[in-house]
Simulated assay, not measured.
Amino acid sequence: MSMWGEVVLVAVGGAIGTAARAGLTLALGDDLGPALVPLINVAGAFAIGILFGWRARMPESSRAQRAQLFLGTGVLGGFTTYSALAVESTDLALLWWGVATVIVGTAAAWAGVWLGRGKRAAR
């Protein structure tokens, strides 16, 4: 696949992920308020971790690379929204919220990688 084909995979995946995040924001934003952005980011980090752990078990192939570009960089990259978290964290009262989300998101990504690697990682 050409470089431009890979760019299209990321762009289409990003549009899907961004639309999913926007849909959740419209559906749940009033109910969850400022908790929604961190929840989306932590869930996305966990899913990215699973994808990367799963990818580590797979043999190198162009198909696996395209799946990672589409799902990881595109869909999940568009779904997570650290830029919105950064904007919310400009309110100094919510700065701790941003820091905590990054820490919990990193832990979720590690857990996802561990889960995605499965039993082979234990050997």
Rank of each mutant, 00 (worst) to 15 (best):
Asp30Phe: 02
Arg63Asn: 09
Thr18Ala: 15
Met58Glu: 13
Ala56Asn: 11
Val37Ala: 11
Ala27Asn: 00
Arg57His: 07
Glu60Ile: 10
Ala67Gly: 02
Ala22Asn: 02
Asp31Asn: 06
Leu36Ile: 10
Asp30Met: 01
Gln65Pro: 00
Glu60Val: 14
Leu39Asn: 01
Ala64His: 12
Ala20Gln: 03
Leu36Phe: 03
Leu51Ser: 11
Ala35His: 06
Ala45Gly: 15
Ala19Gln: 14
Gly29His: 05
Gly44Tyr: 02
Leu36His: 02
Leu24Gln: 02
Ala35Asn: 04
Gly17Phe: 05
Leu28Tyr: 04
Glu60His: 09
Gly17Arg: 02
Ala64Pro: 04
Val37Asn: 08
Leu51Glu: 10
Arg55Val: 11
Leu51Val: 12
Met58Gly: 08
Ala43Pro: 01
Trp54Cys: 04
Ala19Gly: 12
Phe46Thr: 06
Trp54Gln: 03
Ile50Gly: 08
Val37Ser: 07
Trp54Lys: 01
Thr18Gln: 04
Ala35Met: 09
Leu28Ser: 12
Val42Met: 07
Arg57Gln: 13
Ser61Met: 05
Leu28Phe: 15
Leu39Phe: 12
Ala67Glu: 03
Ala45Thr: 07
Gly33Thr: 11
Gly17Met: 07
Pro34Phe: 11
Arg57Tyr: 03
Arg21Pro: 11
Glu60Trp: 00
Gly17Trp: 06
Ala64Lys: 03
Pro34Tyr: 09
Ile50Pro: 08
Leu36Tyr: 07
Ala43Asp: 03
Phe46His: 05
Asn41Glu: 09
Trp54Ser: 11
Leu39Glu: 04
Val37Lys: 04
Arg57Leu: 14
Gly44Asp: 03
Gly49Tyr: 04
Asn41Ala: 07
Asp31Ala: 15
Asp31Ile: 09
Arg57Trp: 01
Arg57Gly: 15
Ser62Ala: 15
Gly17Asp: 07
Gly29Cys: 09
Gly29Val: 03
Ala19Met: 14
Thr25Trp: 00
Arg21Asn: 12
Ala43Gly: 07
Ala43Cys: 13
Leu28Gly: 11
Phe52Pro: 00
Trp54Thr: 13
Gly23Lys: 00
Asn41Pro: 09
Ile48His: 07
Ala22Pro: 00
Leu24Gly: 09
Ile50Trp: 11
Arg21Gln: 10
Leu39Trp: 05
Ile48Glu: 12
Ala45Lys: 00
Leu32His: 09
Gln65Trp: 03
Leu24Ser: 10
Gly23Val: 02
Leu51Thr: 10
Gly53Lys: 00
Ser62Glu: 15
Gly49Cys: 06
Gln65Thr: 13
Leu51Lys: 02
Leu24Phe: 06
Ala22Leu: 13
Gln68Phe: 05
Leu26Ile: 01
Gln65Asp: 08
